[in-house]
Amino acid sequence: MKSDSEAVLPHDSMSALIECQDLWKVYRAGDIDVQALCAVTLTIQRGEMIAIMGASGSGKSTLMNILGCLDAPTKGRYRLNGVEVSALGQDALADIRNRQIGFVFQNFNLIPRTNALENVQLPLFYRGLSLKEQRGRAADALARVGLAERVGHHPAQLSGGQQQRVAIARALVAAPAILLADEPTGNLDTDSSRDIMGILQTLNQQDGITIILVTHETDIARYASRQLLMKDGQIVRDERRATRPVNEPVVP
């Protein structure tokens, strides 16, 4: 296992955190090509909180997966932290996902029959940290999302909102540069959604973690300082706006 310092990618503070140029993603389904992304060009600075909106099938998840180094574009350039990602091999991509990126999914994706603490430990486990350090940092992360009391609970013993908070703790335990959340509140009620968005906003404002989230709800999108609208694989609108303050109710 590599040590923490070794794996830090070249950090050029002048360049943007994310630079996408002319990204294409084409899926072949039978005889027809589905263009999930068409010539997407996008620059994201450190510390931004971005909401991506758009109709179903507009390519939001596809873009998120490429940004998260889970998928490779069919064509185009993607620089993360000044490093050309498309040139990297499987293990290097796994390392980027481990250290620089945190994922939060719509369906939480916790490992079943495994308690909250162990779920949160997972990124550190793959980083090869000692068990003691894994546990300590995982407990801290759970405390940050208000689940200090729930470390021993299994996903099945937690509410949806709590499960999503465990997922956020798992994403932030690795101290990533970017947190990618694909419809993080899609399966939650209004109260839980507000909790989750509050946590994400705090992580963005206090820890400076760059957050990119996909949502269908304008209320949720209002937490972000920048909103992208996607249509047919293209970004058709990109605007910055004032954010909703933390703790303001989502529903008036």
Binding site: A94, R97, F103, L110, L122, P123, R127
Partner: peptide
């Protein structure tokens, strides 16, 4: 399968 996907997403290599 889903668990494997999650593990990969949080940084498991193929070897892991």
């Amino acid at each position: 399968t889903r668990e494997i996907g999650v593990r990969m997403a949080v940084g498991a290599t193929r070897r892991h």
